[in-house]
Amino acid sequence: MTKKQLEMKHPYERFLRKERMPHIWCEGCGNGIILNCFARALDELDIDLNNVVVVSGIGCIGRISGYVNADSFHTTHGRPIAFATGAKLAKPELKVVVISGDGDLFAIGGNHFIHAARRNVDIKVICANNFVYGMTGGQYGPTTPLEAWTTTTPYGNIEQAFNLVHLAAASGAVYVARWTALHVRRLTESIKKALQKEGFSFVEVISQCPEIYGRHNKMKTAISMMKWFKEASEVRNFSDPAKADISPSRIIVGEFVDVEKPSYGRLLREMKAKLQTE
């Protein structure tokens, strides 16, 4: 690279806390793609960063809150959605976005996910689903596919995996989408939609973890994992999320739910306004 190229500013630099770089993520990790798509979505919507709050839990992607140049909170394991619920209700003008992993949001934090979706709290949840607990070195979690090898499934995984888009839809989310880290354009569009939508919106990103997951499951590099995404992905917008289980041969992606329903915050405001006039 020339000196001039090195000095060039990254177009999304303003979205990052540069002093936090380098990040902690491994080479080939999908988290950088998710951060990039999130920054692009904020940029394209021209959202005032002073009104954005990024909340994350524990895990590799949990560090994202420290990298985004907005108000941000790195909570305890499993609790970002409950924290975000409090922040959003206390200050409704904020755009509150939870970005966290599959283990954080659906194992230890699963209860908060379904209840926030049921209440239709106006928060946005982006889940980096890499099928594994990466930060602790590769244990199986609630999205690990059957038969996968992890450090705690040394004889192959015998637990069924959650189908996250089905869970989100059944719990009441008003917007549900799934993409892989390969679908950057469509992922960005879905994040944009989620950010503009009133109510509980959920975007699942199937994300490669070559270092901790892929290399133990016959996909040694990021490229080989993304090849899997490419070959197995099938775009089926507004298909039945109940039938969108992920298998080695098929990853159904697309938008699954996009409906209108008054958010918890709206109903709360209406209730309070009614009390004031009574």
Binding site: A82, T85, A90
Partner: peptide
């Protein structure tokens, strides 16, 4: 957790 979120929102 919600209490902490609300407090940090002021």
């Amino acid at each position: 957790a919600a209490v902490l979120g609300a407090s940090n929102a002021g």
